[in-house]
Design a protein around this nucleic acid. Structure first.
Length: 607
RNA sequence: GCUGGUGUAGCUCAGUGGUAGAGCUGCUGAUUUGUAAUCAGCCGGUCGCAGGUUCAAAUCCUGUCACCAGCUCCA
């Protein structure tokens, strides 16, 4: 009998859960529920001032200014009060008012935040009443009666601080997150999915599969890679290195620290210092003169030094210097998390020095490489973002003219390629605009992986030149690019994407050999050694447990292929194969198994 | 960094003021096993850390560190 493998999270189908933006009905429900919550909060906490309370894709939130922060205990009381409001079946009445009238009424309530909002919104100005005692400035839409909200289909989820208008210089408000659905069944399904997401969280799977650890003694945001995790890492590195060699990249290696001066020239010291670990100085004098060393937050200045070490001709360009460079960034403590946000990470970095004429073609070939790498990793759920500078901000180096040139070059290139993208002002690096590839984790948080950046500024600051055909000295353009972005973040995303089921070529252990009894123990040990010598990551299960237990352990470790050896297989020189993807495949001759494994690994396909 | 929450054995967790527990893992022994857990014994914890309250603290208070969710910030 062939057993079916367990369906993965994405395959299992439950009730369809629409996102808010797809459903007018959910928009109304969530909008109204957030208002019911605001009304309840102001009943229980009369000093609370209201601000904004929009829907999110899975629910809603409302921000309040309250003298005391809310705790999770308060949520219970608030929820209870909300149910009362629902049961009172209050009519939700829309009223259109003049700007002056709205202002008068808001001032009467002392809702200073609402006053600020009023100044920004456009006519017509509408107010929504919940019954006769409570109203809020709001554009709607809403359900017609609070009784339409199912008291068993909503829940309050968490409280958090959130800055007014998203600016950390503003006062911090108290945000309450909630979710609301059409039916209790939808709510239950939503909660079930959240739990399931937790099961494929890379932090949980990373621990269970023994891929990486954190140690309090080493420090926060500094992952330690175990042997299994390191195997995955090296596969990814080797894969990309091969791809890059094919495309004319030149490998380099640079140190982890450098003089502060280097980063003064690049502008990091002036523009990026708060993201850098503090300088280390040999003595007090060095400290005073700012002549110490710093851990590198980026690799570009180092690669630039290599470029500058010789006179370069136009014949040398494009010059593509590539390194898996480990960088250190002092992220704020509250921003760290798992592998997706760490303080030390390895960038699959490369800096391409090109002539202005080569820029477009080189940009295309970089995007081409990135897309082909994503395809190999079965990563399809990404968005392309053009990260431009915020013209209002002064955190960038270089002239307006140079920025326009770089941003237009990226936009033009992306349009020529014909890929979908969106533009995001304010997301650029301090030295240049970027094309970023954005992915989601299991909790629907967005993370940037791959990136391509066009840079006219650093060549200027470091006075980079090449000799042109006519003998004149010309300025090259730099492309910074990293298809993975960082290995840490990539692996975090991959673990969740695969739910821990790495494809065969990436799996830390590809095959485990299981002896049915001690009589096969020596054989499996020898065969595992032989497989390893042929480039297959194989190991023998020497636990001397029963077969059922060995299978269970192998399944829990998500090993792609298990090969059972009993008296019969030993006799016939076969292996009984069981794969995670296909279940039991029956007895296959040893030589055939080895050939198929090697083929599958080489071609990045399943066994 | 800010707001809220959580820290008990390697892992998952129970224990709310009165002698620190369970299962798994690990080790030892028995069993020689045929596709998701064989049985028994043993080892293992200054209850994150530091102060304080108390006759007595895992439990209450203060500080601190780490982790989790969110905000801000970023690969």
């Amino acid at each position: 009998m062939v057993k079916q493998p367990m369906p993965t999270a994405t395959e299992r189908v439950g009730i369809r859960l629409p996102r808010t933006s797809e459903s007018e009905n959910l928009k109304k429900i969530r909008h109204t529920t957030s208002h019911i919550m605001a009304m309840a909060v102001q009943k229980l906490f009369p000093k609370a001032r209201v601000t904004i309370g929009p829907w999110t894709e899975n629910g809603f939130y409302y921000d309040f200014d309250n003298p005391e922060p809310f705790t999770e205990k308060d949520l219970k009381a608030i929820k209870k009060e909300m149910i009362k409001i629902i049961n009172r079946k209050l009519p939700v009445i829309r009223e259109q008012v003049s700007r002056e009238e709205a202002k008068r009424r808001i001032e009467e309530l002392g809702e200073t935040y609402k006053l600020e909002i009023l100044e920004e919104i456009e006519d017509p100005i509408t107010i929504y009443h919940l019954g006769e005692q409570w109203w809020d400035l709001c554009a709607g839409p809403h359900v017609e009666n609070t009784g339409e909200i199912d008291p068993k289909a909503f829940d309050l989820e968490s409280v958090a601080g959130a800055y007014w208008r998203g600016d950390e210089n503003n006062p911090q408000l108290q945000r309450i997150y909630g979710t609301a659905w059409e039916t209790p069944e939808q709510l239950a399904e939503y909660k079930r999915r959240k739990e399931e997401a937790l099961r494929r969280d890379h932090r949980k799977l990373g621990k269970e599969l023994g891929l990486f650890i954190f140690s309090d003694s080493v420090g926060p945001g500094l992952p330690l890679w175990t042997p299994k995790g390191t195997l995955v890492r090296s596969q990814l590195e080797d894969f990309l290195k091969q791809e890059q060699l094919k495309r004319g990249y030149l490998p380099v290696v640079t140190p982890h620290i450098a003089r502060v001066d280097l980063f003064k020239i690049s502008g990091h010291w002036q523009n990026y210092q708060e993201d850098m670990f503090p300088m280390m100085a040999e003595d007090e004098q060095a400290a005073e003169l700012e002549q110490g060393f710093v851990l590198k937050p980026m690799n570009c200045p180092f690669h630039i030094q290599i470029y500058k070490s010789e006179l370069r001709s136009y014949r040398d360009l494009p010059m593509r210097l590539a390194e898996f460079g480990t960088v250190y960034r002092y992220e704020q403590s509250g921003e760290l998390g798992g592998l997706t946000r760490v303080r030390g990470f390895t960038v699959d970095d490369s800096h391409l020095f090109v002539t202005p004429e080569q820029l477009e073609e080189e940009f295309h070939s970089v995007v081409d490489l990135i897309l082909s790498v994503f395809k190999s990793l079965q990563l399809t759920n990404f968005k392309a973002r053009l990260s431009f500078r915020d013209p209002e901000s002064d955190k960038y180096i270089g002239s307006d003219e140079v920025w326009d040139k770089a941003q237009n070059a990226i936009r033009h290139a992306v349009q020529t390629i014909g890929m979908d993208y969106f533009e995001a002002p304010g997301e650029a690096a301090f030295y240049g605009p970027k094309l970023d590839f954005i992915f989601e984790d299991v909790l629907e948080r967005e993370w940037q992986l791959g990136t391509v950046q066009v840079d006219y500024n650093l060549p200027e600051r470091f006075d980079l030149v090449y000799t042109a055909e006519d003998g004149s000295r010309q300025r090259p353009v730099m492309i910074h690019r990293a298809p993975f972005g960082s290995l840490e973040r990539l692996i975090g995303i991959l673990i969740e994407q695969y739910a821990g089921d790495f494809p065969l070529w990436l799996a830390p252990i590809q095959v485990r050999l299981l002896p049915v009894s001690d009589a096969q123990l020596d054989f499996v040990k020898e065969l595992a050694a032989k497989m390893r010598s042929l480039g297959i990551r194989a190991e023998a299960d020497t636990s001397r447990e029963r077969l059922g237990k060995m299978i269970r352990n192998g399944e829990k470790q998500k090993i792609p292929v298990m090969a059972v050896v009993g008296a019969k297989e030993l006799e016939e020189n076969t292996l009984s194969i069981r794969t995670r993807a296909g279940g039991e495949l029956g007895a296959i001759p040893v030589a055939e198994v080895i050939d198929k494994l090697r083929d599958a690994i080489a071609s990045h396909s399943d066994f």
